[in-house]
Amino acid sequence: MKMLKRSLPGRTLLLTAALAVLALTGLAARPAAAEELAKNLFGAKKLPALAAPQSIGFYSKGCFAGGVAIPLDGPKWEVMRPSRNRRWGHPTMIALIEKLSRDAAADGWPGLLVGDISQPRGGPMLSGHASHQIGLDADIWLTPMPDRKLSIEQRENMSATLLVDEKTHLVKDALWVPGHMRLLRRAASYAEVERILVNPGIKKKLCDTVKGDRAWLRKVRPFWGHDYHFHIRIGCQPGSPNCKAQENTAPGDGCDQSLAWWFTEEPWRPNKNPDGPKARDVMTMASLPAACQAVLDGPDPASAEAVTYYGDGVPVAAAPVLTKAPSPARASASGAAALPASVSAFAATPEIGIPLPRPRPGN
């Protein structure tokens, strides 16, 4: 995705000053409270940390700063389960979802129903996902957007369509349409995307039916669940030196013995300890990268609207970062709380060409 550089209007320069203060390279964070469950602390945050965008740690053990929200409604998308407040991500992730909505519409898909992306500051979630912690994961429903605007109540309660038979683990042919394949192929076409997780039955359907170019199937990986949505994962982005990359996918299209394994008994054997605690239920701040404490303590933006990404297809580059921290008066004027002295070791990061929110008139 080509990033176009634009300077941000005057009001956003104050936000840029706050970004410089909270830039996360060279962090010296205060000690974490080991007894705290990280999911409770991150789950309580309603807004992102006002900072230069940066993913910290691994997809299932980390956090992120400088997140932006996708609007609840777009020309070709609607956000589902809005009460969860999981429509936040790294700006590159949000820009990619908006781009996918436009490109998929051009391919004939009615529009995206956007599921969980991340919490405002990432970290372990109160429920659900093990990953989605560093702003680089997003779930997209395999149900097309209706031709009418869904109410908030409908978005909270509407059931998704399950495309896979729970007994055979095969796709229900009556529900599968060519548009599903085109949507997944389009998502896999972006260079930023490293993996797309789908149910093994969906992977098999693609292996059995895709003709011509099959190279994109390498990115589509089978995994438990994912029978009503697919999971997009992008790689670590520039400006995130503490982001831990995942291993590369294996060569080939994945339509081999590794897929056949999913249709044996082994993957579906009952869990020997179904009531055992999940990682999120025992993970404390001490379990996460040290920088996540500063992300947790970082200042809020003025509002969710102030950091909602209205890219309209034109990502905006970060403005030049100031080389010194703003005065307390300017930080207060920007709506950001003064940072504690314990994070004064933040160093300014260089300008990076990644999208930031485009302020709307009056913001």
Rank of each mutant, 00 (worst) to 15 (best):
M1P: 02
M1V: 02
M1N: 09
M3S: 12
K5H: 13
R6S: 15
S7I: 12
L8G: 06
L13G: 06
A23F: 09
A34R: 10
K39Q: 11
L47V: 05
A51R: 00
P53V: 03
Q54L: 09
Q54A: 15
Q54W: 14
G57H: 02
S60H: 11
S60W: 12
G62Q: 01
C63L: 04
F64V: 00
V68S: 07
P71M: 08
P75T: 08
P75K: 05
E78F: 00
E78H: 08
P82L: 07
P82V: 05
I94L: 09
R102M: 15
D103R: 11
G115K: 14
P120I: 06
G122L: 04
G123H: 04
P124Y: 03
S127N: 13
H132F: 10
I134S: 08
I140A: 04
T143W: 04
D147I: 07
L150Q: 00
R155Q: 05
M158V: 07
L163A: 05
V164C: 01
H169W: 05
L170E: 11
K172L: 12
K172H: 08
K172V: 11
L183Y: 00
R185I: 08
E192W: 00
R195K: 13
R195V: 13
G201S: 06
D208L: 06
D213G: 00
D213Q: 07
R221A: 10
F230W: 09
S240Q: 00
P241S: 00
N242I: 02
E247K: 14
C255Q: 06
Q257Y: 10
S258G: 10
S258E: 11
A260N: 12
A260C: 01
F263L: 09
P267D: 00
R269C: 07
P270V: 11
D275F: 12
P277C: 05
M283I: 09
A290F: 11
A291H: 03
Q293I: 06
Q293T: 13
A304E: 15
T308G: 01
D312A: 10
G313P: 06
A317M: 05
A317S: 15
A318V: 15
A318P: 07
V321A: 13
V321K: 03
S327L: 11
A331D: 04
A331R: 08
G335H: 09
A337L: 08
A337C: 02
A341W: 14
A345V: 08
G353A: 15
R358Y: 01
G362R: 03
N363I: 15
